[in-house]
Amino acid sequence: MSISSTKPDAPRRGRPGNDRDDVISAAVRLFNEHGYEATTIGMIADQLGVSKSAIYHHVRSKEELLAAALDHAMGALEAVLDDPRAVTGDVVDRLEFVMRGTVTVLTGELAEVTLLLRLRGNTELERRVLERRRHFDRAVAQLMQDVADEENIRADIDPRAATRLVFGMINSITEWYRTDGPLNGQTLGDLVVRLVFQGLRARSS
């Protein structure tokens, strides 16, 4: 199934000091703090201590910055589903891998994923990204259904509701996780899997 891409134009060469990734990172911080609409190129330039013209050496518009950040976040999540460990093998192991992988992406790309989760579909760009996110959500929901079909979770649990609850919990990590805190992505992923599967897994008689 094809999904819409948000990949921006090829990177432009900029002045020494700040590269394109620096500009994108500064923009994401400001988008998360003030909102996309309220953030200006001038604010991004001030954040980096450069002129607005220096920003335009790297990108053509504010929307290009948003597109690059969102494509990075979605690309990382999509890579989890494309990994062979999410595609082949025991279905429970595949679901556990996807859960751990999603946590790793959230903790490793915290600012970009936070921006992604706050999208409301106000522009064509945002709507394209949200369609990619729905594709991801549907794939995860199908994986949970596959687990249920093999009777690996309790019969009294609705797979679709479980998917929403589990990934609602995972997505909430962006609201409280701190990169300088005591938990790294791997440890947090293991914790999430233990919490979830103690409640989901069917007990053998």
Rank of each mutant, 00 (worst) to 15 (best):
M1D: 10
S2Q: 14
S2H: 09
T6Y: 09
K7T: 15
K7A: 06
P8N: 07
P11E: 11
R12F: 09
R15S: 13
P16F: 08
P16W: 03
D19M: 10
D22V: 05
I24F: 02
R29E: 10
R29F: 07
L30A: 01
L30Q: 07
F31V: 07
G35C: 08
G35V: 06
Y36W: 12
E37G: 12
A38R: 12
G42D: 14
M43H: 10
I44H: 03
I44K: 01
A45M: 06
D46T: 12
G49K: 03
S51W: 03
S53W: 03
A54G: 04
I55V: 15
H58P: 01
H58T: 09
H58S: 13
R60K: 10
R60H: 09
S61T: 11
E63R: 07
E63Y: 02
E63T: 12
L65D: 01
A67I: 04
A68V: 07
L70S: 04
L70V: 02
A76L: 12
L77I: 13
A79D: 13
D83N: 12
D83M: 11
G89N: 03
D93Q: 10
D93G: 08
R94D: 05
L95E: 05
E96T: 09
F97Y: 14
R100E: 14
R100C: 06
V103S: 04
V105H: 06
L106F: 15
T107L: 10
A111E: 11
V113T: 13
T114Q: 11
T114Y: 00
L116K: 09
L117F: 14
R118F: 05
G121S: 06
N122R: 14
T123D: 07
E126D: 13
L130V: 07
L130N: 04
E131G: 10
E131H: 11
R133S: 14
R133D: 15
R134K: 11
D137G: 11
D137F: 00
R138T: 10
V140S: 01
V140T: 06
L143T: 02
M144P: 00
D146N: 08
D146W: 01
A148K: 06
D149A: 15
E151S: 15
N152E: 15
I157M: 13
I157L: 15
I157R: 08
A161K: 07
A162W: 00
R164M: 03
M169N: 05
M169G: 09
M169W: 10
I173P: 01
I173G: 01
T174F: 02
R178D: 09
P182L: 06
P182F: 06
L183S: 03
G185Y: 02
Q186C: 03
L188R: 01
G189P: 03
D190C: 02
L191S: 00
L191I: 07
L191F: 09
V192A: 15
R194K: 14
V196Y: 02
V196L: 03
F197I: 02
F197R: 02
G199M: 12
G199N: 10
A202T: 10
S204Q: 14
